[in-house]
Amino acid sequence: MFKILEKQVFSPIIKQFVIEAPKVAKSCKAGQFVILRIHEEGERIPLTIADYDREKGTITIVFQEVGKTTTQLGQMEAGDYIKDFVGPLGEPSHIEKFDGPVVVVGGGVGIAPVHPIARDLKAAGNHVIGIIGARSGDLLFWEDKMREACSELLVTTDDGSYVRKGFVTDVLKEVIEERGKDNIPMVLAIGPQPMMRAVCNLTKEYGIKTIVSLNALMVDGTGMCGCCRVSVGGATKFVCVDGPEFDGHEVDWLELGRRGAYFRPEEQRAMEHHQCKCGSGCGGAK
């Protein structure tokens, strides 16, 4: 059992937990993920590690409530226990000193996993330009942490309710135009699939290498089931052991999106079933 030490609510659907998991905290690196299961009947869901404290033995996760499991997770409080919490899984981010400024882009809840990568890139001597964005200002979080992790930080909101109006791709385009495409050796983007895809479309025009962190459906997360397979450069890869980071220009986004949506009707059904049981929806009428 893994204790939730702290809970922070960023918005009604975006929450942060600090979880006691010394085994994971001892060895995890930026870019890796964990798989958790809330209770005995629970499903296994992957979440990218947002931060860690090796001394305290804690892992920080930030998640958005999208389905039954994340909604139930969001209802848990500090002091509660998560049944299973395993990691670190996946390959760590590739960190090196690049020749020129690198750009890291975090969209929505994707800001969280970008954070430790930005921090490590900066620690490796890079000039890190951070771009973070959300639909609106109230969904934005970790501006201060990101400002610290990056060399400079640019903030945007889709609706213009905070700092400026525009997508992260709009800001990225301005940065590339301003710095010159040949001076930016690498872009890293994490966020919702349409956002990562849009970033890749943009950077492909400029010919800038772009790394994305994919979120696929998984069961074991150790390369055993192949549920998370994705075509990258025409070859089948497992997100759980070959990724989660890949060259975004090589990813078959259409296939990834389709595979990710495969269980959507069941996810909907699970959510309704959950609401029936917990009384928040139909009051058990179904």
């Binding site: 009947e41 629970g42 499903e43 296994r44 039954k68 499991t69 069961v219 074991d220 055993m224 089931c225 192949g226 549920c227 495969y262 269980f263 069941e266 996810e267 059904r269 699970a270 079933h273 959950h274």
Partner: peptide, 25 residues
């Protein structure tokens, strides 16, 4: 893969969905 199909069913008890959370189609 057979591994995924059987793991969902056996380990994750997808045959008891939605009482158990893991689905199988």
């Amino acid at each position: 893969s057979a591994n995924e199909f059987l793991t969902r069913t056996n380990l994750m008890k997808a045959y008891m969905f939605p009482d158990w959370d893991t689905p199988i189609k």
